[in-house]
């Protein structure tokens, strides 16, 4: 990635790594890869109601040369598969892929001749996001998890060695499925709530409850 990769290991590299990762995660620029229905939910996530601009992502670069996050949103047909690969190849490192929706993750409900059964047959995927289509909030959750993953990404040749070592110890994925979301980490009260819930083994429950409290039609008690 440039001069940062060549720095010798040590405190300097760690700080550079933190800064570099923070800069990368705070300004993901998505490559427009909306294919089908999920594309509309992605556009809605970029819209004013579920604003992706809160995380610096309101801009979707049409040119893959200027993008670092490809959100494959929608079903990938056999005819489209080479195009997906070409766009992925045209993106410069460091790049990540979120496969949005069940069709991109696994072929979805279309288990047939025309659809590639999962875009991971074509490009390496970092985050899989199920849903048909996933709500904009789910997409935002996936993007936040992507940010955490990027934040923990190692830099430099020693970083790669460190990653191998972690893999050997079995400590991957870097962001474990039940990890504390960044929205909770920022707030002291919620962080305490979360840690308590983890002790009791009900952290997913806590997330769902908190989300439900914010939904008007569920606040009135369902139906």
């Amino acid at each position: 990635m440039g001069i940062e990769e060549k720095l010798p290991a040590g405190i300097l590299l760690t700080s550079v790594e933190k800064v570099s990762n923070w800069a990368r995660k705070s300004s993901f620029w998505g490559a427009t890869f909306g294919l089908a229905c999920c594309a509309i939910e992605m556009m809605a996530a970029g819209g004013p109601h579920y604003d992706l601009g809160r995380w610096g992502m309101e801009v979707f670069r049409a040119s893959p040369r200027q993008a670092d996050l490809m959100i494959v949103a929608g079903r990938v047909s056999q005819k489209m598969a080479p195009v997906v690969r070409q766009i992925y190849d045209q993106m410069p490192e460091p790049r990540s892929v979120i496969s949005m929706g069940v069709c991109a993750s696994s072929g979805g409900m279309f288990n047939n001749y025309a659809i590639v059964q999962g875009v991971d047959h074509i490009v390496p995927v970092d985050i899989y996001l199920p849903g048909c289509p996933p709500r904009p909030e789910m997409l935002i959750d996936a993007i936040l998890k992507m940010r955490e993953k990027v934040m923990a990404a190692p830099l430099g040749p020693n970083g790669k060695k460190m990653l191998e070592a972690r893999k050997a110890e079995g400590k991957v994925p870097v962001v474990a499925p039940g990890a504390m979301p960044s929205s909770y980490r920022a707030d002291k009260v919620r962080r305490a709530e979360w840690t308590q819930a983890v002790k009791e083994g009900r952290e997913e429950q806590l997330r769902i409850e908190n989300w439900m409290k914010l939904q008007p039609h569920l606040r009135e008690g369902g139906k």
Binding site: L35, A36, G74, S77, M80, M109, F110, A114, I115
Partner: peptide, 22 residues
């Protein structure tokens, strides 16, 4: 044809009611 999903053929292997979802 870049989004051809084979919906019409899929329908032949589902119920009449399930056809709605496709």
């Amino acid at each position: 044809g870049y989004l051809h999903t084979g919906i019409e053929k899929n329908l032949e292997y589902r119920n009449w009611t399930q056809g709605t979802t496709f």
